[in-house]
Simulated assay, not measured.
Amino acid sequence: MPTSNNGNVDLTISDIGIATISFYHPAQNSLPAALLSNLAQKIEQAGTNSQTKVIILKSEGDRTFCAGASFDELLQIKDKEAGAVFFAGFAKVINACRKSPKIIIARIQGKAVGGGVGLAAAADYCLATEAAAIKLSELAIGIGPFVISPAVTRKIGLPAFSQLTIRAVDFQSAQWAMQKGLYNEVYADIATLDEALDTLAQKLASYHPEALKGLKEILWEGTENWDELLNQRAAISGELVLSAFTQQALNGFLKK
């Protein structure tokens, strides 16, 4: 287990071309700005490496996959410009996944909250455990899942997105997430998840690279405007986070 208090992102590429991007933060794998930037860079780096055949996106630990935005960092935002820059970090990660010419498989070993759901939605295929419940808690802290909403809605549809957003304090089960299309496969535990992940990644690494690239393009048809769209959404979130409601809600969550 990594021990850095600031978190880290690592990239390794196996002999058969499986690129594994792993991120870690001690606060339930939450994502401050520096980690978001590093994650986007590693996704781009893996995608442009000629040795890469397929990408695995995962987090460390055996509990939470990703708790979303760093609340500590959200409380440090003092103007809407800084807020827009922070939330644009999520936009960069989603767009890096979208633009990558390589298929991205997400390994969701535990709960995904807020931006963590966005990461899962930005992948091309998701394997999860039964413990990988999901929640979009943004409304409960006075903001909305605006940056990640195009990616999430693209996967689960508007009715399911509405339920997930409006039920902001309620977790939906991994089975629910699979039924709605966010997860493709759900396993009883991490051991069986990893076995299935290894098998799938090895199969994909053996396929024709140009066929995989063509499939990737098809999977993301109609999203060509996301560079502009997600940055516009980041500006909305960046302004809302400055409200007294949100600042009070964030402080309340951190005191729990």
Rank of each mutant, 00 (worst) to 15 (best):
V186G: 00
W176E: 05
T153Q: 15
R98T: 11
E73M: 03
R167E: 06
W176G: 03
V169T: 12
N95E: 13
F171C: 12
E185K: 14
I190P: 02
L158A: 14
Q172C: 03
I166V: 08
A133G: 12
E195Q: 13
A96P: 01
Y125R: 04
P150I: 04
D170A: 10
I134C: 15
D72N: 14
A196P: 10
A88Q: 06
Q109W: 06
F90E: 14
E195M: 08
E195R: 09
P150R: 04
F146M: 14
K92M: 04
Q175M: 07
A151I: 06
T165Q: 04
G118V: 12
E81M: 00
S100Q: 08
F65L: 14
T192Q: 15
K78A: 00
L127A: 09
A120S: 15
A151Q: 06
A188I: 11
K180E: 15
K80G: 00
F65D: 13
S149H: 03
R98W: 10
Y125E: 04
E138Q: 15
R107F: 02
L139M: 10
R167H: 04
F90Q: 10
A151M: 11
A191P: 02
D194M: 07
F87C: 07
A174L: 08
L139S: 07
Y183P: 00
I166F: 04
K80N: 05
Q163M: 07
E73F: 03
S100Y: 02
M178I: 03
I143P: 00
A67R: 08
F90K: 02
M178A: 12
I156W: 04
